[in-house]
Design a protein around this nucleic acid. Sequence first.
RNA 1: CGGCGAUUAGCGCAGUUUGGUAGCGCACUUGGUUUGGGUCCAAGGGGUCGCAGGUUCAAAUCCUGCAUCGCCGACCA
Length: 570
Amino acid sequence: MRTTQYLLGTLKENPANAEVVSHQLMLRAGMVRRVAAGLYTWTPTGLKVLRKVEQIVREEMAAAGALEILMPMVQPADLWQESGRWEDYGPELLRLKDRHQREFVLGPTHEEVISELVRKEISSYKQLPMNLFQIQTKFRDEIRPRFGVMRSREFIMKDAYSFHTSDACLEKTYQAMYDAYTRIFTRLGLNFRPVIADTGSIGGDMSHEFHVLASSGEDAIAFSTESDYAANVELAEAVAPSTPRDEATQELNKQATPNVKTIDDLVSQFNVAIEQTVKTLIVHGTDDHGEPTLVALVIRGDHSLNEIKAAKIKGVLSPLVFATEEEIQAAVGAGPGSLGPVGLKLRTIVDRSAAVLSDFVTGANDDGYHYFGVNWERDAACTEVEDLRDVVEGDPSPCGKGTVRIARGIEVGHIFQLGTTYSDAMKVSVLNESGKSQNLAMGCYGIGVSRIVAAAIEQHHDDKGIIWPEATAPFQVCILPMNMHKSVRVKEVAENLYSELQAAGFDVLFDDRKERPGVMFADMELVGVPHTIVIGERNLDEKAVEYTARNSSEKVKMPIEDVVSYLKGL
RNA sequence: CGGCGAUUAGCGCAGUUUGGUAGCGCACUUGGUUUGGGUCCAAGGGGUCGCAGGUUCAAAUCCUGCAUCGCCGACCA
């Protein structure tokens, strides 16, 4: 491709409204343009990268035995009503009507459509297992789209769905997908980790997320320092402390703390260690008779509540709903800044780490007062102990080996064993070997294709621009002729090399613009082309050109006739 | 949905406090100059100042409403 015939679209200045580096670079390198919130046009350079990612995903899915299909983006509402998600999905599901006033949705995912297909097409266990995938545009009406294509409303996803007559068979395909995903992200040149994940609203038993490690990632991941264990912090277990609770040494005493509204106030004004404080959070729940009630959750002052863990406790509303200040006042008689387990008349669930404290400090359920020297059993009941908090750096690893380290990741893939949730709702069944109708076990496997492009840039860039891994670079090589418009020799060598490289199968960008050298260098570095050949009068007397790799500052002078074989050998 | 902020040329911004008929840099066009790291000089094109209403002799500027966009939070395969 010649730059004079190409839409390069590079920007010298950083666009406003682009927060993360991948978003900035995608705009500056001319890969995408914003159309509306969370909606982007992929311009030629961006589309080339996107297609390369798609192709790798497609090849590895096919190699793992999945069959490619293409389902519609617009889906009839009745399928969603059948699965129950018409009600459950909420405002993220964009609903629309056609000219006959029939209701449709813009597909955020395709479990319903695939179930509809499979229940019609597959009728015998002999046709199973089957794994079908597509690479399709999805639409999710995100509350807050951000970070460019990283969290957009319209995005491209590879989604696969597998169907089985037994859990053992599902597990086998699940493992095959796990392995395929590992190959895909390896081929893409990404530093990634599979992590144990929450199954979330989609349900099911077993789930892994694949995360590209990057400081800008939206998810926190807990790793073991000594094993392969990795889990999303949402899910990672905070192991119960092995040391038993110390004996009480202090008397319970109530002190006036008029200016204390938060744990930080308490720590700074009364000289107590934050680890010796306890905070109490009030959430909505139901009692044994299913009646609405409030539940108190107690965690150590320096820890933070894990809402997913809390919501999984029986009798706690899921998703978690915090009590309002008015509700707390009505139930306890004190404001949120003065709550504590002593004398509290609500069901109280204590976090494992809070449960081993002694002589601790907590609110007195009386505005402006705290209890000091509090001890469990003696001063407050501690009957229910659960894992309620996020793990923190230095905790013992849940796997039993090493301690926890926290890193940030961008979720680029997610695989689930769904079981029969959808096939029960959608009646996806076949006749099994004994001639009985059986609902199918199902797995689903997603990869955020467009998100991968952004994630790759987060991981591979410097202050000059993008540094594409070989596999996803928009062009493999670029030719930069110095003052070609003044030098017949330079033009001739550049044109010849351009033809030769193309003939040898390289995707090459030939910068034939009448631009100053600095402009060309800056643009090619911004776009991130991995290999650059510079042709200038300076070296032509020796019939030589100069090679540089994007990921190195080293300049290599080489004879013109060696260029093709040199690049082939890389 | 709550809090905060923004909206002036294709992009990045100044001008708004104190009302007086719109400016800078980049990009673009033309001519010259320069030529291995975003040259320099000159000339030029491009704006219903987000929209609607109001105040005023006069509104980018003051007032009211709305829209769009972004940040933080809540939410989310």
